[in-house]
Amino acid sequence: MWIKGRVTDQSSIVPGYYRLRLRVPVAFGARPGQFAMIRAWDTYDPLLPRPFSFHRLLPEKGEFEILYKVRGRGTELMTRLSTGDEVYIRGPLGNGFEIPHGAERIAVVARGIGIAPMLALAEEAAKGGVEVQSFLSAKTRELLLAHAELEKVSAETFVLTDDMPEAKDRLVTDMLAEVAAHKKFDAVYVCGSRRLTRAVASLEMEYGFRGYVAMESHMACGTGACKGCICKVRGEDGEEAYKYVCKDGPVFPVRRVVV
């Protein structure tokens, strides 16, 4: 879909991080893990739309939220958006998260802005009666974005920030391993850190859950045309090949990606 959306709310969570709410005029049909290309300018500088995962899906209101970090000229311009402003939206795009049929418990693992797609997933899982356990990592406690919102839909939330003394020789996935030792997870989802992605991949072998990673990349088109947003993925035969984050992902089985 290629539509104009209208800003209904924007707020800064902590300096440099914003939550933007958009209203779309038609049923959007987006799923957690999918993304949209958003352009909030008519200029040639910045030029192209930017990809954002859905942070929260509110179909009953015809709205969705994105959570973004100011990284360059595009996101800098977006911080100036206010209620009523129009933006161009192409989406929903990509494959989205899969919650295995009959799943009883899942875990979400996120670092920093990697939390963005996880709230939508956790809210959908909780709505479907699936227990959610959240494992959050960030540089500082302040940068545990959307922590409160995620806590509301999580049975338990575990946090580990780089400024905590115990973070010296521990990852938040070590906490996941401790829980997984006595509770069965049907699926674990990770976003925002190569290190955590690798850790989830190795825990998948050990604990037999299905692991998924939401990959990030710069994109020009978001639809598979420009061939720009590659990641390395291992096939069934173990052979590595480039896949496109936009079209083949952004969600991949965690054991398949080479990170």
């Binding site: 040639y44 500088d45 910045p46 030029l47 192209l48 990349s217 710069h218 994109m219 020009a220 420009c226 061939k227 720009g228 947003c229 590659i230 990641c231």
Partner: peptide, 13 residues
């Protein structure tokens, strides 16, 4: 990767 980089009024690929 990276294969893309936006520059002033243009795209490097």
């Amino acid at each position: 990767a990276p294969r893309l980089h936006e520059v002033t009024a243009g795209l490097l690929n």
